[in-house]
């Protein structure tokens, strides 16, 4: 019986489209991305915390209700500790540019770096 081809023209088109789209997007992000202003932390889809990255020089530690710990320093933010089995969130490392994000899926927590206006308060009381 004749086996299906190794690779066909259609495959080429599929690959081409994928690679073009993906590479283009990544390139755009790498070039056009601004250093982030703030990091938005969401748990279960709700924003629970916003960290001002602009003013984050010395280490600032944040602990969420679900036990996840974040550290902001040198205008970056990262997962510092979490009780999830894989620890991928912590492995992701420091986030700095607009659009970069890290997630701890077992804890339903996502940290995304966003741009926007600089916030001129040191903290928000709520």
């Amino acid at each position: 019986m004749k086996e299906r081809k190794w690779i066909s023209k259609t495959d080429g088109i599929v690959l081409g489209v994928l690679v073009l789209f993906a590479a283009g997007f990544l390139l755009w992000r790498a070039v056009a991305a601004q250093p982030g202003m703030r990091a938005v932390v969401t748990v279960d889809g709700e924003a629970v915390l916003q960290i001002d990255l602009q003013s984050a020089e010395d280490a600032q530690s944040y602990t969420l209700q679900n036990g996840v710990r974040l550290i902001a320093e040198n205008h970056t933010v990262r997962f510092a500790a979490s009780d999830c089995p894989d620890g991928i969130c912590v492995e992701t490392g420091a986030l700095q540019k607009v659009g970069e994000s890290a997630a701890c899926v077992p804890n339903r927590t996502v940290v995304t770096v966003v741009g926007g206006e600089p916030r001129d308060v040191d903290v928000i009381a709520y």
Binding site: R38, L49, R119, D122, I124, Y126
Partner: peptide, 13 residues
């Protein structure tokens, strides 16, 4: 220090 007071009708930030 500059402390912001949360907008009761706005989001967390």
């Amino acid at each position: 220090w500059r402390v912001g007071i949360r907008d009761p009708f706005g989001t967390a930030n």
